[in-house]
């Protein structure tokens, strides 16, 4: 019996229905289809924000007026009305535009956080949200290393808002709306394995053009969205201190310990109680009443 099975067995015996803690892996199951992802080549992005418009139209969200709103002048984050935003950075190599949205992590913190399974890592890769399950605890927001899930604070019936990689399209193999709308092919939709190959080839063919790093290859255990850049990623708003450990790993040790405590402690405590029992105490258990 290996470690995992041992924990699973002991867990099932435990009272708190924690049997499945040992299954904390969020990776693909064997034989599952490969995860979809998108490669963003920031050197190709011209900051036209067609993706923002396409996203809003496709998903019934806010559609920005890209001609007139001057939004590129400020550094924005996605919010509860917009699942994706393009930011402008002035760098050592000139203007760079970066589209941001949910990274669709391979082992997402948000799904590990969610106690209702409202956040779901689908078998095809996109991380989606189920309105009928979510209780609005916002633990996904606390846990997501990229601060992606957003909450509707001004509604009595609030939703969590985040990019779902156009699940209605990707679930049948179509491209997300943003990818389709991109006039410069800065976005490529595909399986991570293929995307990695394209990315590596571009770096290999133009070593002077790109930094030799693909953001998302290893970050937080690998993400579905990958980024190429001409300048160090710190310069275009990416955090470099997130590590390569999948975030659910951080709670795994704790969750493994749970069945052990639930099985071991009661026995231990009952033993202590017996040991402290005075010789002449007839009645076991309750005492002192």
């Amino acid at each position: 019996m290996n470690r995992r099975n041992f924990f699973r067995l002991s867990g099932m015996a435990s009272i708190a229905l924690m049997a499945k803690t040992a299954e904390a892996s969020h990776g693909p199951r064997p034989g599952a289809p490969e995860f979809w992802g998108v490669l963003v080549d920031t050197t190709r992005c011209i900051g036209c924000r067609s993706c923002e418009v396409a996203c809003g139209e496709e998903n019934g969200m806010f559609v920005p007026d890209v001609e007139n709103d001057g939004a590129l002048e400020t550094l924005r984050t996605t919010d509860e009305t917009q699942w994706t935003v393009v930011n402008h950075f002035e760098t050592s190599k000139g203007d760079v535009f970066v589209k941001r949205q949910c990274m669709h992590c391979w082992q997402p913190a948000c799904t590990a956080a969610c106690l209702t399974k409202a956040m779901e890592k689908t078998e095809l890769g996109p991380v989606i949200w189920h309105e009928n399950r979510c209780m609005g605890c916002r633990f996904c927001m606390v846990s997501c290393p990229f601060d992606v899930p957003k909450f509707e604070y001004d509604s009595w019936n609030p939703k969590i808002q985040k990019c779902i990689m156009c699940w209605h399209r990707t679930s049948v193999g179509d491209k997300p709306a943003c990818v389709e709308s991109c006039p410069t092919d800065a976005l490529i939709f595909g399986h991570k394995r293929d995307l990695m190959e394209i990315a590596r080839m571009r770096i290999y063919n133009h070593p002077e053009k790109y930094v030799h790093k693909i953001y998302g290859e290893h970050e937080v255990g690998g993400t579905g969205w990958l980024y190429l850049s001409a300048v160090p990623f710190e310069e275009i708003g990416f955090r470099m201190d997130l590590g390569t450990t999948p975030y659910p790993e951080y709670t795994k040790d704790f969750l493994y310990g749970v069945p052990l405590v639930l099985l071991g402690f009661p026995a231990l405590l009952a033993g202590m109680n017996l040991m402290t029992r005075p010789e002449n105490d007839e009645e076991s258990g309750v005492h002192g009443e």
Binding site: E23, L115, T116, R133, M135, L255
Partner: peptide, 26 residues
């Protein structure tokens, strides 16, 4: 009071959506 959608607080209890892997569930 803090839950945005408190009427779904029942979900992790009645078992139609058990997020076993969540610390908050535990």
């Amino acid at each position: 009071f803090d839950l945005g959608r408190p009427w779904h607080v029942i979900n992790p209890v009645i078992g139609n959506a058990f997020g076993y892997n969540s610390v908050l569930f535990l």
